[in-house]
Amino acid sequence: MDRKKKKFTPVITVNECKGCERCVYSCPKKVLRLENKLNSYGYRYAFYIGEGCIGCGSCFYTCPEPGAVSIYEETEDNT
């Protein structure tokens, strides 16, 4: 399958994020930002700008919170 056809989506669980920005500065494609709003615990939280993720997992591994970042891969499914 053509590698370029794959689409990756990082998902941030708003209330598990503490706004430390590790994912923001670790992302090689700079596609994560910090929201100006606060979550229920008073932290600004990260969000995905919607395109450009290459699924490298840097944000996932640099995030100190167990479940704040997940990354999904969407593939062409012919069946």
Partner: peptide, 22 residues
Amino acid sequence: GITHSTHYCPGCGHGVLHKLIA
């Protein structure tokens, strides 16, 4: 109290390592 996140400060290295261990 809070059962979905850790007690660590934002950006703490312990959290990063915990994930690698788990």
